[in-house]
Amino acid sequence: MDALLTNVDWTEIGWASWDTLVMVGLSLLFSVLLGLPIGVMLFLTSKRQLLEQPVVYAVLSFVVNVLRSVPFIILLIVMIPVTVMLIGTSLGVAGAIPPLVAGGAPFFARLVETSLREVDRGIIEATQAMGANVRQIIFGALLPEALPGLIAGITVTAITLVSYAAMSGVIGGGGLGDLAIRFGYQRFQTDVMIITVALLVIFVQILQMVGDRLVLYFSRR
């Protein structure tokens, strides 16, 4: 086994895995914190919804679309000055988080919007008929009813962030992607490449499994 994996430094791999976990975890947290309100606003201001506001919707939707249509590799580069301004550096684990959030939040916002659309209009109407205000409709009915969809959305976002985080290795982002690029690609250490990719695959598998379990647990339909 060791003969096959001559170049693999397991401590290095361990640290890189940890870095990936931290990047994905933190960027997922911020993506959800930012994406959830944006998604809720997208839903509420869209046509025939509670706070129908064509202009607000058009602006929000445009910004989200722009961020989503820029290839992530470009977004990584474009975000560098913003990242330096926010964090002081564009390198390492911390430096990777702003571009990851810039990619993850609009992605999650759209998923939030679609999962809110899945909520039966009748439930919103019934809640309105009970004398609920908009805040109560959002927190009392819309979000709880959309919870399984939201969890599925978080899962998909997390998995997307795993691949984005790996890509951030290109601009010195750290983590498994960084390892794969520096050793696997630039030094032709195929064994390092295989191990990092295998670890990423396992990571994604675990995320999907946990996500699916949670969706199932919260589905009462």
Binding site: G122, I123, A126, T127, M130, G131, G140, P144, E145, R220
Partner: peptide
Amino acid sequence: FRRKVGMIFQHFNLLSSKTVEDNIAFPMKL
């Protein structure tokens, strides 16, 4: 005013994420 007007629906429109008792308690909590 709406709290003093109950409404029931063809497709019931119950909250699927809440139990029977939580559904009944919902308008009171609101």
